[in-house]
């Protein structure tokens, strides 16, 4: 029996049970938020591309690029310009995140140097501004000293989806296969100096009946 001694309020057994049940349900329905360590574990809610896939793709391709024999053949650190990753899947995937993360890891590893293609127009505009007489001569950047890239880093993300044929069943199964291809092209010779790919296959099933 639940009782409030201060007010002498007493509840009958059914009311007490109802209040307890309501409180339990209220707690059960409360929204929760928890932080997840990105390095902790692989989380997939369905078969579609997600954060864990990006992490796997970035790690595998970065490791491959850092262990390539190309580095041993070069006398100085190769200079790379990234041309992005084409999204040839049937999902709206921001592939810029993949190329940005690969570039970040390679820069942090210190084996490659990168030129920033996306900031090229801004850099030109800033240089023009500095040389237009607004900036003292000694503070102006010297023109003609931009790094020339040796390699283009570019890739393609593709997907193939297969759905279970229509038949009597209680769940719908979907198989998605992702293939991420990345290559390093020598700008001078046009040769593909390095290439690798990561493949991810995943199956998900969804109940056909629900409440």
């Amino acid at each position: 029996m639940i009782a409030n001694t201060n007010t002498n309020m007493r509840f009958s057994k059914p009311v007490a049970i109802a209040i307890t049940a309501f409180m339990l349900l209220s707690v059960g329905c409360a929204a929760t938020t928890r932080s997840i360590d990105p390095d902790e574990s692989t989380i997939h809610y369905d078969a579609n591309y997600d954060f864990s896939d990006k992490k796997e793709i970035v790690n595998k391709l970065t490791d491959s690029l850092l262990n390539t024999t190309l580095l041993g053949r070069e006398t100085s650190k190769p200079i790379i310009v990234t041309y992005g990753i084409a999204n040839e899947t049937a999902e709206h995937i921001n592939t810029g995140g993949i190329s940005d993360d690969i570039r970040l890891k390679l820069i942090q590893a210190g084996e490659y140097r990168f030129v920033n293609r996306k900031q090229r127009d801004n850099a030109l505009s800033e240089t023009d501004f500095q040389h237009a007489g607004f900036v003292p001569p000694e503070q102006r950047v010297v023109e003609g000293r931009q790094l020339g890239a040796n390699y283009i880093l570019a890739g393609t993300l593709r997907s193939i989806e297969k759905q279970q044929p229509r038949e009597f069943r209680l769940t719908k199964r979907k198989l998605v296969f992702y293939s991420m291809n990345l290559e390093l092209t020598n700008i001078e010779t046009g040769e593909i100096s390095w290439a690798d790919n990561v493949e991810i296959a995943r199956e998900s099933s969804q109940p056909i009946l629900g409440w």
């Binding site: 709206h92 719908k172 969804q206 109940p207 056909i208 009946l209 629900g210 409440w211």
Partner: peptide, 17 residues
């Protein structure tokens, strides 16, 4: 329209109720 497509995916089951 992206929201419409997402909703269609969520509704891709038969609601007994």
């Amino acid at each position: 329209l992206l929201a419409a497509r997402e909703l269609l995916e969520q509704l891709d089951f038969i609601s007994v109720r």
